[in-house]
Design a protein around this nucleic acid. Sequence first.
DNA 1: CAAATTGGTGGAATCGATTCCATGAAATCG
DNA 2: CGATTTCATGGAATCGATTCCACCAATTTG
Lengths: 338, 338
Amino acid sequence: MRGVTIRDVAARAGVSPATASRVLSGNPATSALSRERVEQAVAELGFRPNAQARSLRSTRTSTIGLLISDVRNPFFADLAHAAEQQALELGLITLLANANESVEQQNRYLDVLLAQRVDGLILVPQGGDNANVEMLASSGLPAVFVDRVIDGIDLPSVTADNSSGMGEAVQHLAELAHRRIGYISGPRSASTGRERFAAFQAATLACGLEQDPELVVFGDFQAGSGAAGARQLLELSNAPTALIAADGLMTMGAVRICQELGIRIGEDLSLVGYDDIDAFAIMRPALTLIAQDADEMGRTAVRLLHQVIAGEEPEPVVLPTRLMVRKSTGPVKTGVNR
Amino acid sequence: MRGVTIRDVAARAGVSPATASRVLSGNPATSALSRERVEQAVAELGFRPNAQARSLRSTRTSTIGLLISDVRNPFFADLAHAAEQQALELGLITLLANANESVEQQNRYLDVLLAQRVDGLILVPQGGDNANVEMLASSGLPAVFVDRVIDGIDLPSVTADNSSGMGEAVQHLAELAHRRIGYISGPRSASTGRERFAAFQAATLACGLEQDPELVVFGDFQAGSGAAGARQLLELSNAPTALIAADGLMTMGAVRICQELGIRIGEDLSLVGYDDIDAFAIMRPALTLIAQDADEMGRTAVRLLHQVIAGEEPEPVVLPTRLMVRKSTGPVKTGVNR
DNA sequence: CAAATTGGTGGAATCGATTCCATGAAATCG
DNA sequence: CGATTTCATGGAATCGATTCCACCAATTTG
């Protein structure tokens, strides 16, 4: 069954490999007769073109790579799903790779995807060692950044406005009379980590809130660090009355810790999460959060990449973020010390 | 930068392409001198071997395909993550593809992955049109089923014991005096859907519970169908006092509906979920659920595939499932009609 | 010291599909 | 009706790395 080549097909159809190839690639310069005979031979032999051989010659693979930072993060799962569907519509196949929030693994997959000669690459860059990403950018392979960018590397990008949603969140908490807001930040190595933190600082300053460095802890966008950060903040002698976490997984970690410590979210503590993850809607209390549109981000990334492949130079796209107020935030409790 | 071939490297190093190739593939029949010169040339030119050309000749790609049914289902996200890490340890690169619970899309990706000449394939088969899967099985390409199987197609598999956890769950509910248990089933097209349903029926029979066909609704393993199913069951004139959902996403849908209908989970209604998803642990009340080890399943699938690639014929592996009792199940309320 | 082994090397064939180029037949035109 | 264009086709080169085979030099062995 395996090892059926186009030569076998051609022989069976009584034509040359050249003609068989033309039929298979939809080249119009083929007669109805040979088209029919080749198609029948293909069916009879169960022929499957070897993509390697094909793209070796034609230098196109109709395949794009999507290198995300964490499959287990629902935000990226959604993004990947939307991107893949959009790619399918454009006739592109998506090979998904998971950097697992590790630069080393990112670089490894970068190598693999380049070696696979994908037609283009969508990348959620990890911070740290950028050598491979720089190589990618200068290689001329169509590529776009999604969600995060790397300063100094000029590639088209789709990102979210990391500032406006955060500003709304801080203002919302300020209006509820919170003065000390704890912040569980993403890593400084990620642009999203830096931008959200900067937005947090700017907003607390603008609202005249306390700017105590003790109120900020740095995590790595994974649940464990969110938990550790929340614990550290909540065990402060002068603990914050509200908490903002900078991504979905760290939010989950923070929630877990609140429960362990017996802190009632929405009453004893106001919590603002990040990312509009399904689970956050059905939690009780439902989580107030900063939402970004993962689906739109995924789709846009593919469209941008498609443009780059077509030789265009698309402008960077910045999608909005917004605060969704639900039940995990409330007025600060005055006089009651927990 | 692009288009550097091994010929360029060889020329720069002053050796033949054959020697350059040997150095690059770690063939011991190379002198220290040429090894050094080739490596330097590679570095200077930024040479990247073309995987297509390589595997065209050597028929190995060191790449495996992992075709899951839904990236957005945390169970499969966990499974994919674990599989990928295990593959990396064995020196294999995982290309992840997402069937999106659709046979058509599964078949499309099956074509692509075969054309990419992956060394092996791990597949969560969709039900329905099996033609492509049969083709796969008879093609001789190393392949294993994970999570689900297709009857009549003899491939090594890693599945969960869909029976024991379900049995425990029904018994647990029976002990809490529930007599009418609603069941939100997976599709009959999936082996897991069928097996869990069969286990549910067997267990209700064994425990002497009601076997009303009205108590069973069929979903498609996605959140929407879980919601629709839960609504249908809970709006029954003679509604069940307990609900079991057959996968994680349908469980989430069911929870959402309970909240919409104002039904207090764990008090008005007992709910047993499926899959040990992080979110289920931090929900209030924490969900009682049937847990399977997604990580172990992913790792085992890769190990099995590795064995198949090595020419062995591994036995099917069945992993245990177990009931984790938390707070969403409680004694049936007698006398109180909601 | 001749013969056999070992080790490194280069030339050339190879993997399978695509595509350039030349060719011959049919169709169109002046 | 001869000349030109169109069209389908086959032969052969090609993509880039691997690997078989032959070769030569250096070493070891009888």
